[in-house]
Simulated scan of single mutants.
Amino acid sequence: MANELEAGFTGSPVEKPEGIRKVASDTASAIKREANAVAVGVTDHPQAASSLILGIGAAAFGIGYLLGRSSVSTRNRYWR
């Protein structure tokens, strides 16, 4: 009798996802597509990708440096 029992899910869901589940599914598939596109672009143009990353890093460093310099007081304070 135990051999006759066949239980388990072997098909696809009957109901399509709705509401927030559909939005989450669509968002996940869009992120996967974009990540794949970026990976293909980096594979096709490695020099351009590394130059872009270095440029963004240099710009971020420069902005951080300027913000750090502007937060320092320019007046000299001495204890008397």
Rank of each mutant, 00 (worst) to 15 (best):
Q47H: 13
A60N: 06
R77Q: 07
G62E: 11
A39E: 05
E4I: 14
L54N: 13
G64R: 04
R80Q: 12
I63L: 11
V40S: 05
D26K: 01
M1L: 12
N36V: 03
L54D: 10
S50A: 11
A35E: 15
S50I: 12
L54H: 05
V38W: 09
Y78V: 10
A58V: 06
R69C: 08
S71V: 05
A58G: 07
P17V: 01
T27D: 02
V14I: 10
K16W: 10
S51I: 04
Y65I: 10
L52V: 04
P17I: 04
S70F: 05
R77Y: 14
G57C: 03
V38F: 13
T43F: 09
G57S: 13
D44W: 01
A59S: 10
K16N: 07
N76I: 13
G55P: 01
G64V: 04
S73Y: 05
D44R: 09
T74N: 11
T27F: 06
K32F: 11
A24W: 01
T74V: 12
P46D: 01
G68T: 00
V72R: 10
G11F: 01
E18L: 14
D26H: 02
M1C: 06
A48W: 07
E34Q: 12
R69D: 04
S50D: 07
S25H: 09
V40C: 03
A7P: 00
R75H: 06
M1N: 05
K22R: 09
M1S: 14
S73I: 04
R80M: 11
F9L: 13
E34L: 13
I53W: 06
G62N: 05
G55C: 08
A37P: 00
G19P: 01
K16V: 03
R75Y: 07
R75K: 14
A58K: 07
A58L: 12
G19A: 01
V42W: 01
Y78M: 10
V14N: 05
N3A: 08
D44S: 08
T27I: 14
G57Q: 11
Y78K: 13
V38Y: 13
N36W: 08
Y65V: 13
Q47D: 15
D26C: 00
G68S: 02
H45S: 09
K22C: 03
M1I: 11
G64A: 09
V72K: 09
N36E: 12
V40R: 14
L66F: 15
H45P: 00
D26Q: 04
R75W: 05
S51A: 14
A35M: 11
K16G: 07
E18V: 15
V14H: 05
L66G: 04
T43S: 15
N76S: 13
S70K: 10
L66A: 12
K16T: 09
M1V: 06
G62Q: 05
A28R: 09
E15N: 12
V72E: 08
L66V: 10
A58Y: 02
A59T: 10
G57E: 12
P13R: 02
A30E: 02
T10M: 03
T10D: 06
A7C: 08
N36R: 14
K16M: 08
G64N: 02
E6R: 08
D44M: 11
N76T: 14
G55S: 08
A39L: 03
Y65R: 07
T27K: 08
I20M: 09
A49E: 00
A59G: 06
I63T: 07
R77M: 09
G11I: 00
S29K: 14
G57N: 10
E15A: 13
T27S: 06
E15Q: 15
